[in-house]
């Protein structure tokens, strides 16, 4: 098995996943959709296993190989979360982002030979990034819901269970991402936390969501605490893409 076979597996899996998502939305029963998604996962695993065996080491050494794992884990974690919570849109989202990584792999063959710098070559790298991507999706959805909820404040609070759910799940992923990053940093750089600018901002973001979670437990008025979600999401966006442009971030190990 080699990268030249990837296109068949990629399109096979993508077709199965997309058909699965459509079926989840359209069909009366979700069984067919689940089976299609599982079949896609199986097909994709065959390619990874084949590549692994052919190379004689886990495919974790090039940028293309990490993209491969992103596509795979996004679907797996998205699917597991869907199974537990029934959020169909999350399955759709996972498929979409996974497709983006698959297309990057197909359209930029040079990344199959671009080697990952040694420090990034770690089993923690892929789960670290994957759970972050999923956490952004959940917290982004919570932010949209918070705007709707702010509009409806006077009439109902029907969205609050959904919002709290999304925040807890998203925050759970966010914490996992951060903590796996910490373990990895200890293995790679000697310190699990060094207040690097990206780490500072990740900390700020997590704190903002913790304020939301604990304010909800206190039962503070919704018209104030719902505003925490858009604010926290802006902080999250700064952590994700804005940090590189901040003056305090020059010299960060996370700026690449």
């Amino acid at each position: 098995m080699s990268w030249s076979h990837f296109i068949y597996f990629a399109f096979g899996s993508l077709t199965l996943w997309s058909a699965g998502v459509v079926s989840l939305y359209r069909a009366k029963s979700t069984t067919a959709g689940k089976i299609l998604i599982l079949a896609g996962i199986l097909l994709f695993s065959v390619f990874i296993a084949g590549l692994w065996i052919a190379q004689g080491h886990p495919p974790l050494r090039t940028i293309g190989e990490t993209r491969l794992w992103y596509s795979f884990f996004l679907i797996i974690v998205g699917f597991a979360t869907y199974l537990h919570w029934g959020y169909k849109w999350l399955m759709g989202y996972s498929t979409l982002v996974s497709a983006v990584f698959i297309f990057v792999n197909l359209l930029k063959p040079e990344i199959h030979t671009t080697n990952l710098m040694p420090a990034l070559r770690s089993v923690w790298f892929v789960p670290h990034v994957t759970v972050y991507i999923l956490s952004y999706a959940m917290l982004g959805a919570a932010t949209i819901a918070s705007f709707v909820a702010l509009k409806e404040l006077r009439s109902t609070q029907r969205l609050m269970p959904l919002i709290d759910n999304l925040v807890y799940i998203g925050f759970g992923f966010l914490m996992m991402g951060m903590l796996m990053g910490a373990i990895w940093a200890k293995e790679a750089w000697g310190d699990y936390w060094s207040w690097d600018p990206k780490e500072v901002w990740a900390f700020i973001t997590a704190t903002a969501y913790l304020i939301y979670i604990h304010s909800r437990l206190r039962g503070y008025p919704l018209k104030y605490i719902l505003w925490l979600l858009p604010v926290a999401f802006i902080l999250l966006m700064i952590t994700w893409i804005g940090v590189n442009y901040l003056p305090a971030a020059q010299g960060s190990i996370h700026v690449y």
Partner: peptide
Amino acid sequence: PALIGIIMMIAGAITLFWKGGA
């Protein structure tokens, strides 16, 4: 000790998205 704390928090994060907030 830090690692023990981290592992407990990872387990805690799993309980968060398993139980949800509602």
